[in-house]
C-alpha cells in the first residue's frame, strides 16, 4: 500500500518508466492501482529509433508486473514523509 500511496502523489507529474524488456517510456501519470499498474498519457519512447512500436500511441496502460524502474521527478519526492510511512508500515507489517 505504501508505494500505491506514493504513486498516487505523482498523478499529473511526468515520470519515466523502464520496462523489463528495456523499453523506456516517458509520460504523464494518469492513474495507478493496487497492483501498481499504471496509466500514462502523452507518452514518448526514449529511444524511438530503436523502438518505433509506439509511434501512434499517446495514452497507454503498463502492467505493474513488467515495470523494472520508475523515475519520479526530483521535486515531487519528500524523503521525510517516505521515511515515516516506511517505519509505520514496517511496524504494522508483523
Amino acid at each position: 500500500m505504501l508505494f500505491y500511496s506514493f504513486f498516487k502523489t505523482l498523478v499529473g507529474k511526468q515520470i519515466t518508466v523502464e520496462l523489463k524488456n528495456d523499453l523506456e517510456i516517458r509520460g504523464t501519470l494518469v492513474s495507478v492501482d493496487q497492483y501498481l499498474n499504471i496509466k500514462l498519457e502523452s507518452v514518448s519512447v526514449l529511444d524511438e529509433e530503436k523502438y518505433p512500436h509506439m509511434k501512434s500511441v499517446r495514452d497507454c496502460f503498463v502492467r505493474g508486473s513488467v515495470v523494472r524502474y520508475v523515475q519520479p521527478p526530483e521535486e515531487s519526492v519528500d524523503v521525510d514523509i517516505l521515511h515515516d510511512a516506511t517505519r509505520r508500515e514496517a511496524r504494522s507489517a508483523v
Binding site: 508505494f3 501498481l36 523515475q71 519520479p72
Partner: peptide, 11 residues
C-alpha cells in the same frame, strides 16, 4: 546516475 529511482522488488 539518477536522482530518485523506484525499483520493483521482483527483480
Amino acid at each position: 546516475s539518477v536522482p530518485y529511482l523506484f525499483v520493483r522488488g521482483d527483480a
